Simulated assay, not measured.
Amino acid sequence: MSITVEKLKENFAKEGKTLAQWAREHGYAPRDVYLVVGGQRKGNYGKGFEIARKLGLK
């Protein structure tokens, strides 16, 4: 069950939380999270995959 990036951003906006806050709370660099959400890092393996799974994108 994966969600779209648009839905993810909508959920964060409803909660009043930023991707950077989420990244720090989960021990990731904000830049890594932005790369996954923006599509520059596909999230097929490694840290990118972990981030995508935790965000519900995979």
Rank of each mutant, 00 (worst) to 15 (best):
K14M: 11
L35A: 13
G56S: 12
E25F: 01
G56C: 04
I51A: 01
Y28M: 04
K14Y: 10
V37K: 00
G46T: 03
A52G: 14
A29G: 06
E15C: 05
L57W: 02
V37I: 04
V33E: 00
W22R: 06
W22H: 04
P30R: 02
V5H: 14
E6C: 09
F49Q: 11
E50R: 13
A20Q: 10
L19K: 06
F49V: 11
A13P: 07
S2C: 12
M1K: 12
L8C: 10
Y45L: 12
Q40T: 09
L19P: 05
E15H: 09
N11H: 14
Y45V: 11
K9N: 14
R31E: 10
N44K: 14
A20Y: 11
A13Y: 08
Q21H: 02
L55C: 03
L55Y: 04
G46Q: 05
K58M: 15
V37M: 01
W22C: 05
F49S: 14
A13E: 15
R24S: 05
A29H: 10
K58C: 14
A52F: 05
P30K: 03
Y34R: 10
Y45D: 10
K54C: 08
T4I: 13
K14W: 12
L19R: 09
Q40L: 06
S2L: 11
P30N: 02
H26I: 03
K47G: 07
E10I: 07
T4W: 07
G38D: 01
A52Q: 07
G43V: 08
E25N: 03
E15G: 06
G46M: 08
W22N: 08
Y34L: 05
H26A: 04
Q21D: 10
T4C: 07
R24L: 11
G48N: 06
D32K: 12
E15T: 05
D32E: 15
K17P: 09
M1I: 11
G46R: 08
V5C: 11
T18G: 06
N44E: 13
K47N: 10
S2A: 13
G46N: 07
Y34I: 04
H26K: 15
K17A: 14
Y45H: 15
A20S: 15
A20H: 09
G38E: 01
K54W: 05
P30W: 02
K54V: 04
E6N: 15
V37W: 00
V5S: 09
A23N: 01
K9G: 12
R31L: 10
A29V: 09
P30H: 04
I51D: 00
G27M: 09
G39A: 02
R31S: 13
G16Q: 11
G27I: 10
I3G: 14
G27P: 01
K14Q: 14
R41W: 08
L19Y: 07
K14H: 10
K54F: 04
